[in-house]
Measured scan of single mutants.
Amino acid sequence: MAAGGDHGSPDSYRSPLASRYASPEMCFVFSDRYKFRTWRQLWLWLAEAEQTLGLPITDEQIQEMKSNLENIDFKMAAEEEKRLRHDVMAHVHTFGHCCPKAAGIIHLGATSCYVGDNTDLIILRNALDLLLPKLARVISRLADFAKERASLPTLGFTHFQPAQLTTVGKRCCLWIQDLCMDLQNLKRVRDDLRFRGVKGTTGTQASFLQLFEGDDHKVEQLDKMVTEKAGFKRAFIITGQTYTRKVDIEVLSVLASLGASVHKICTDIRLLANLKEMEEPFEKQQIGSSAMPYKRNPMRSERCCSLARHLMTLVMDPLQTASVQWFERTLDDSANRRICLAEAFLTADTILNTLQNISEGLVVYPKVIERRIRQELPFMATENIIMAMVKAGGSRQDCHEKIRVLSQQAASVVKQEGGDNDLIERIQVDAYFSPIHSQLDHLLDPSSFTGRASQQVQRFLEEEVYPLLKPYESVMKVKAELCL
């Protein structure tokens, strides 16, 4: 049975990233139509530049190519590739079939990587351009969430054990800070992308030097003109047959890092959902379990974690691919890159769409948070109580021993009897502590235990987050809708 299948058929496997999760716009960027249309555009740009620099290419040939950029006979191309065992030459023939007058000058002087690699770089750039505003929107939604809850005390956790208090907004800023680093890295790697350009079979530009009869300047002009037509500021000066596969490492490393950030955020949300302090959106008709109707599973956060793990592992592909590119190139890269580049971007696209949807509907339960604080705060307040007693004339050592005994009794009630923490009640009825009984409410005010959390939130948002989001103001209103 021949390899390949009808990918629109229910009898043929289709990647869930495309069929179930990723956005239509990201799927289109990695589609065959987008790819092969870009090949034709690159052939047109090459012909236009070659004509401008004096090669015998007519206006009629150029116009014929322009008129057929979208006229792609995919069936013919597939048949040609089956016959020739070469995808680029299959599309040269297919393009030439609908451009008979231009057929002889299509791909003039070029090698397969002229269309293959340059198209990949265009796709990487455009895919990054799709991700950047999506990530900015996630940051914006979380920034709104953090600002609104900047002063809401909550129990902090280290080692997932109760620690000092923080605020809900401050905790959210930990998430935002990681995503801001990801946004900066995505922008950097996007701006650092260079075009492969017009380089020939081993990167020496020998074929173009021959076409222009040894004119170095025209060869350099050709490279520059096509690079500018493709919208790049610069091209690699040095290439082998391909652009260095280190570029793929750079791009997928940034995406993998984004995956790590999203995994951490969504894990926190899942843990908070278990504590009943916070939940992701839950639709009115949504079913959490087929057997347990009360369940409210954090399905979206779980999906993000599941896909983020996949995204983090994909960076190993370009690392290994770059390491086995012998001399000017081997074909070890080809099949692998067809999979890992598309999957990385479709996965990143999915987790950003999902995280935006989550961040637009996060639900906080202040009463649950308050109750958990009441359970733990008495123990945390013991040092403040000791200091207040010393100020009232008591002995630190005597007070410490009193607190120690009462704390152990209260802990026994919590752990052995399943009761509430009654340390404060014990202190309130103990005559030894009568000098500070009137101060206990103040000493137990949760806001006095959150330090500068709310001020940190305000400063972080104003100095770091809002300036970073400013270039994306025009796209901030787009909502994230999930079908599944």
Score class of each variant (00 low, 15 high):
481 E>L: 11
140 S>R: 14
45 W>V: 07
356 Q>P: 03
337 R>Y: 03
212 F>K: 05
425 E>V: 08
45 W>C: 07
465 V>C: 13
345 F>S: 12
144 D>Y: 15
82 K>M: 12
263 H>G: 08
108 L>T: 12
259 G>K: 00
252 L>P: 03
482 L>P: 07
102 A>E: 05
7 H>I: 13
401 E>V: 05
155 L>C: 03
46 L>F: 07
482 L>C: 09
108 L>S: 15
373 I>C: 07
95 F>M: 10
438 S>N: 10
415 K>S: 06
7 H>T: 15
405 V>P: 04
369 I>A: 15
184 Q>R: 11
320 Q>S: 10
445 D>R: 13
26 M>F: 04
194 R>P: 14
354 T>C: 14
326 W>A: 05
254 V>Y: 10
484 L>D: 05
271 L>C: 07
249 I>N: 06
432 Y>L: 08
168 V>H: 06
269 I>M: 07
306 S>V: 03
149 R>C: 09
357 N>L: 05
249 I>V: 11
181 M>I: 13
456 Q>E: 02
4 G>F: 15
19 S>I: 04
264 K>T: 03
470 K>D: 15
218 K>R: 14
20 R>F: 00
345 F>H: 08
244 T>F: 03
59 D>A: 11
475 V>Y: 08
339 I>V: 14
414 V>G: 02
3 A>W: 10
95 F>Y: 12
411 A>Y: 05
444 L>Y: 05
320 Q>A: 10
387 M>F: 09
114 Y>F: 10
293 P>T: 01
303 R>S: 02
290 S>D: 01
35 K>C: 12
460 F>P: 01
277 E>L: 03
207 S>C: 08
387 M>H: 06
307 L>V: 15
380 M>A: 02
484 L>Y: 15
147 K>W: 12
437 H>L: 06
239 T>C: 11
4 G>R: 14
441 D>W: 08
137 R>L: 15
291 A>W: 02
35 K>W: 01
184 Q>G: 12
385 I>D: 04
318 P>Y: 00
212 F>A: 07
22 A>D: 06
91 H>T: 02
385 I>R: 01
337 R>N: 00
369 I>T: 08
483 C>E: 13
221 Q>I: 09
341 L>W: 11
169 G>T: 03
437 H>D: 06
45 W>P: 02
392 A>I: 08
59 D>L: 11
170 K>E: 00
334 S>N: 12
31 S>V: 04
38 T>Y: 05
233 K>V: 12
309 R>A: 06
207 S>A: 14
428 Q>Y: 09
433 F>S: 06
85 R>Q: 00
297 N>W: 04
213 E>T: 15
25 E>L: 09
7 H>M: 15
6 D>W: 09
87 D>E: 13
